[in-house]
């Protein structure tokens, strides 16, 4: 009996020492793991989506390997609708090694516009949930998460068609000059084809025109477009239907009444 008790005592003591030393050294070595998040970059992905890239440098100077490094980004609108979700996973970061990874997340504006067209014309804010998780010494899972607000700049902010001015074209038609104004608040330069259909009265197509516009980010655009319309369409009320074509998105019609 005494031998058994002594054996249990020795085993318990040894296991306690091992457990405490391992736990403390694992937690202590966590302070030697360095994370460096670089400048986020916005580009165009090969499939014409907006690509956010975040370079991450992990420098493991701790005593143990770090396992299951995972970065997850969830972007949702203010109503909680998830727009995009992306993860970057590194299975093992060996001790003494430095790893550079790039966390990439894409936003498909076409999918975004199915939820609301306001993303094209109004600035808003998106909710970003960033989660970073690792396994210290490959056995102690640690997770850090934070919520951020990402400002969304509308590429066609405050898009308006101004009052038309008419000049004679020939005996039956006049040229209507329609002013176009908007500001590109997006984080990318915009090259957009704007196609305008002019309808008079009850859906009678009286003219159409197209223009190509290029605006740098955070730049206002003031331009105009010319449409040839029948003389008898002058003075009537109606509406414009505007279509936008870009490499990022296609949208239309945007209905703007006139008269």
């Amino acid at each position: 009996m005494k031998i058994l008790i002594r054996m249990i005592g020795i085993a318990t003591t040894l296991f306690w020492i091992f457990l405490i030393v391992f736990f403390i050294s694992a937690v202590y070595s966590a302070k030697d793991i360095g994370f460096d998040f670089g400048e986020p970059q916005v580009d165009l992905s090969p499939d014409n989506k907006i690509l956010f890239s975040l370079p991450i440098t992990i420098d493991n100077k701790g005593y143990y390997d770090v396992g299951s490094f995972n970065v997850t980004t969830e972007i949702s609108d203010q109503e909680g609708f998830m727009i995009t979700r992306a993860s970057t996973f590194i299975p093992v970061i060996e001790k003494g090694r430095q790893i550079v990874a790039t966390h990439k997340d894409t936003i498909d504006i076409n999918a975004l516009l199915q939820k609301s067209q306001d993303y094209l014309f109004k600035d808003t804010e998106l909710e970003v949930r960033e989660t970073v998780s690792i396994k210290l010494a490959d056995v102690i899972p640690v997770q850090a998460s934070t919520n951020l607000t990402l400002p969304w700049g509308a590429p066609l902010y405050n898009f308006t068609l101004g009052r038309s001015e008419y000049s004679r074209f020939n005996g039956t038609h006049v040229t209507a000059t329609v002013p176009i104004d908007f500001e590109n608040h997006a984080s990318f330069d915009l090259a957009v084809i704007i196609r305008v259909y002019m309808y008079a009265g009850t859906n009678i197509l009286v003219g159409e025109g197209q223009t190509t516009v290029e605006t740098l980010q955070n730049t206002p655009y003031h331009g105009q477009m010319e449409l040839d319309i029948p003389v008898d369409a002058i003075g009537e009320s109606g509406h414009f239907e505007v279509y936008f074509f870009t490499t990022f998105f296609n949208f239309g019609p945007l209905v703007i009444p006139y008269g």
Binding site: L19, Q143, A144
Partner: peptide, 22 residues
């Protein structure tokens, strides 16, 4: 602004087993 969660369940189980052994 960040919340930190540490999962010590494995450590706790081992510590409790050693406690039971004691």
């Amino acid at each position: 602004n960040a919340s930190l969660v540490v999962d010590l369940r494995l450590f706790l189980v081992v510590a409790m087993l050693l406690g039971l052994l004691g």
